[in-house]
Design a protein around this nucleic acid. Structure first.
Lengths: 195, 195
DNA sequence: GTCATGATTACACAAGATGCAATCACTTCA
DNA sequence: TGAAGTGATTGCATCTTGTGTAATCATGAC
């Protein structure tokens, strides 16, 4: 028989999500999580850098896919369009078919400021990674960062809509709408500031 | 004579900034900070919710001013323009004349991921506050959030430029440039995604 | 059969953070 | 004048997160 039950990471993630759901993030201790998962505290911190990280297993996979899409993109497209296509493709591939579980986890994150800070940090890291991938294709560094930032803004707006219970459209379509809404907003206000 | 030396908060902020500068945020303990400031740990945590918060004294003041500007704005202007004017005014009033110290503090923040997460959290909170202030003026909630987000993106782009050592333009002008750059970026890419 | 690997564990400990009660100069007000 | 209340600071105990280090021992390679 195996020395340990397999799937330690999964068990920790599941136990943590359950407990955060039941009693909130702050009122849940790592001791409780590892007890439910049948492991020790030291093992928890071997797998996750800190208590928050247990909720963010998906982000590295997402980032890898997005960067891959950008690297494979048509060299002639403008940077923002490259990123929008990449986000759309990854939405279809990794997010769309598990809306319920993704939305559930996001609800837990949004309910706690510490977790929200981590979420924002992940988004910022992804923005930087996208900008770096755009620079790989050649092009101005500032333009790359700007395209990455605008795309991530659209992604965020779309994601917030997508996780609302009454929303039925696909994330890809919401993404398109969000970018268009950004354009409308900006076009109406880009004129010189008064002195 | 007074029972305690006045300016406890100031002394803590100054000591913390010095120490973070000298040896980094992580390698500085609260014990060291309070020792330099001539106070106790308990007092530190009476004034600041956690160790990071000691660096963010300016944010609440900034937020108050920005919200005030928005509340006093011309009712006929489009939301994004309202926010851009408010950010420009507050940049002139609170930021422009102390570029060196603001840039210095930002450098300390940017050097540490934990502090950067807090910075992102503050920006997100400010975005939400701006959106709420726009809603006060009447108008769609989504449009308010969008205008707030776009303005904060421009602010962030402008701020990053403004804190570069070789940059000499005023934050207000960089803000204007940033919004225009956003517009150019978006206009070039807002068309339907391919299936 | 021996050996290296690697996930898990035990233990000790630093550091951050909180609750609670005590101190005592200063202010208020009868 | 003096009694009472205020509020910033402190001391102490305690909980929780996070880390360094060494030990354990099934598994797989050779």
């Amino acid at each position: 028989m195996p020395r340990w039950k397999p799937g330690a990471v999964d068990r920790l993630q599941t136990a943590a999500l359950e407990l955060f759901d039941e009693q909130g993030f702050e009122r849940t201790t790592v001791a409780e999580i590892v007890q439910r998962a049948g492991l020790t505290q030291r093992t928890f911190f071997n797998h996750f850098a800190d208590k928050r990280e247990v909720l963010f297993g998906l982000s590295s996979e997402l980032q890898r896919e997005i960067i891959g899409e950008i690297a494979a993109a048509d060299a002639a497209l403008p940077p923002l369009e490259v990123v929008m296509r990449a986000l759309g493709a990854v939405a279809d591939k990794l997010l769309e078919h598990r809306r319920a579980v993704v939305a559930h986890r996001y609800a837990v994150i949004a309910a706690n400021p510490e977790l929200m800070e981590r979420e924002l940090g992940k988004n910022a890291a992804l923005t930087d990674a996208i900008a770096a991938a755009l620079r790989e294709r050649g092009g101005d560094a500032d333009a790359a960062y700007l395209a990455a930032s605008v795309a991530m803004l659209a992604e965020q707006v779309a994601f917030r809509a997508w996780t609302r219970p009454d929303e039925t459209r696909a994330l890809r379509d919401l993404l398109q709408d969000a970018l268009h809404a950004v354009r409308t907003t900006v076009d109406a206000a880009d004129r010189p500031l008064p002195a």
